[in-house]
């Protein structure tokens, strides 16, 4: 009984002492509470190619008749900043309807801002095939684009230690919040820094790189190879990122910035090439012909 009391007192003492010690800073929780420093993030659209304006003609489809599905593929990128995209397009599931025109549109190229129209004609099932009941034809269109680049550019403000001291002496020193510009497309790469900027020239800078799938589709093979480099300069690190759900693991990169001036704004670019596919389904209702 006495032992039990001692144990309970011991546990309660520890539970009181632990937060006190933690708040006093006597225990370094290491990476547990390590937080990334803030960055301003500017996103571009998560869409790159979209399938839109899906239309069924005639609007009401009856058993045994022919109908056509019209749709448009658009490259939503800005012509001044985006590249052309190579894609393949095919319709592959029609339920009990039967395609009567080509369903595989092959490989094509689309320029930023461009729209391309497509149509597929189908034959609705007969009354007997539908057992005189209303039926549905889910028409699935799959679009796959290849060799698309995901890019993110982040500012890295580097300063010599001497310059930093001069600015501090003059009360002019300020931490710099970098802006990261995340490029167009569903795969977005992000930088995560653990140190405030400016970085000191000649000292280690540790940062993490990871990616997110912010689109509705899937990254082919579920992984991407990311390369981080200095804009107009050398490569810093490269690593394979694997998607678990919509996010990848974080890869640690170490960089020792060097500058030939007392301060300089450098730009880090993370880049990965990926293939991506997504689907669009149009559910066409087929009505039995009145007897």
């Amino acid at each position: 009984m006495s032992n039990k009391k001692t144990i309970i007192t011991g546990i309660s003492s520890i539970s009181i002492l632990f937060p006190i010690i933690l708040l006093c800073g006597c225990i370094n929780p290491g990476g547990f509470f390590a937080a990334s420093v803030s960055t301003n993030t500017v996103h571009k659209s998560s869409d790159l190619l979209v399938i839109k304006n899906i239309k069924v003609v005639p609007q009401r489809v009856y058993a045994g008749t022919k109908f056509t599905l019209y749709f448009t593929v658009k490259h939503v990128g800005d012509p001044r900043t985006s590249d052309a995209v190579i894609y393949s397009l095919r319709a592959y599931d029609f339920g009990i309807c039967k395609p009567i025109t080509q369903t595989d549109m092959g490989i094509q190229e689309i320029q930023p801002g461009e729209e391309k129209e497509y149509s597929i004609s189908l034959q609705a099932p007969s009354n007997s095939e539908m057992a005189d009941l209303e039926a549905h034809c889910p028409i699935r269109i799959r679009l796959t684009y290849e060799n698309v680049k995901a890019r993110t550019q982040v500012e890295a403000y580097v300063m010599s230690e001497e310059r930093m001291k001069t600015l501090q002496r003059n009360g002019k020193f300020q931490n710099y919040v970098p802006t990261q510009k995340v490029g167009i497309g569903p795969v977005k790469i992000y930088f995560e820094f653990l140190q405030n900027q400016p970085f000191i020239a000649g000292e280690n800078v540790v940062f993490f790189v990871y990616a997110k799938n912010e689109g509705d589709g899937d990254v082919e093979n579920g992984k991407i190879l990311v390369n981080v480099k200095i804009a107009g300069g050398y490569s810093i690190c490269s690593a394979e990122l694997s998607f678990i759900g919509d996010e990848t693991n974080k890869v640690k990169c170490t960089w020792v910035p060097s500058i030939n001036a007392d301060e300089k704004m450098l730009y880090l670019i993370a880049e990965a090439t990926y293939d991506y596919s997504f689907e669009k389904t149009e559910d066409v209702t087929v009505y039995p012909l009145p007897q």
Binding site: Q153, A231, G232, Y267
Partner: peptide, 8 residues
């Protein structure tokens, strides 16, 4: 520069 990866 003659080439940049992203408009900036």
């Amino acid at each position: 520069p003659n080439h940049i990866e992203m408009e900036m």
